[in-house]
Computed example of a mutant assay.
Amino acid sequence: MKRSHVATKLDLEAFARDGASLAGEWPAADLPRLVESGALDHPAAQWPAVRWSLQGELRQPRAAAAQIWLHLQAQAELDLTCQRCLQAYRQPLQVDRWLRFVSEEAEAAALDADSDDDVLALERHLDAQALVEDELLLALPIVPRHEVCPQPLVAANTELPDVEPVRPNPFAALAALKPSPSKD
């Protein structure tokens, strides 16, 4: 009997045991933490939908317990604010990652530190939407910017020549009133 799996309440162990897969799209506006990263003047309702797919896998290494793996792929396009010109631009994001799940948080931390694999603690029900959002947030550029800004940049530290207005010396008027020394 084939089970149905729900992405927002995924029994990951059963999903991996079944070798199941899920795919779909979510409106970008349904991912609130991702929306917070976007340009303020470009609402997420205008962004393309976030596309994702999940593939569960149960791996059986020799002389070891079965391992739960999840292959996650996601694509999104966000409007971010360029940190050079402060204009909005469209940033494509792509995630293609294998995640291993273990039974306890301490085991996940130990394995994650010693391995090149991403290791997470297994939850009773995984919210795949939150996981996809987490991975897209990690894929964001540290400093969002255009490859080439569409408008010429004005250098912030451009120095103008020091030209001070010529102001009359306030004591010059007093000096003119002072009687000149007589030559007797």
Rank of each mutant, 00 (worst) to 15 (best):
A23Y: 01
V50K: 02
A74P: 06
C82F: 09
F171V: 09
V163Q: 10
A14L: 09
S115G: 11
L174H: 06
W98E: 06
L177C: 02
F15S: 12
A108Y: 01
W26E: 09
P48C: 15
V163T: 08
R84V: 11
Q94T: 06
A121D: 01
A23R: 04
P165R: 08
E25S: 10
P43C: 11
S115Y: 12
K183D: 12
L58A: 14
C82G: 08
E159F: 04
P92W: 15
A155P: 04
V166W: 11
Q60S: 14
Q73H: 11
A14E: 14
P27S: 04
E133H: 04
A20G: 10
S180R: 11
E133N: 05
A63W: 10
A121P: 03
Q46K: 03
P170F: 11
A139S: 08
A176M: 07
L153P: 07
A45H: 02
V6S: 13
P150H: 12
S182A: 15
A66H: 08
V148F: 10
V119G: 12
R145M: 14
A110R: 05
G56K: 04
A44D: 04
A156R: 07
A7K: 04
A74M: 05
F171N: 08
H146V: 00
Q94P: 00
H71T: 04
P181G: 15
A44H: 05
A63N: 12
D11N: 13
Q151W: 02
V6D: 14
D117V: 01
A20N: 08
K183P: 01
Q91T: 01
L126D: 06
F171C: 02
R33Y: 09
L86S: 13
P152G: 07
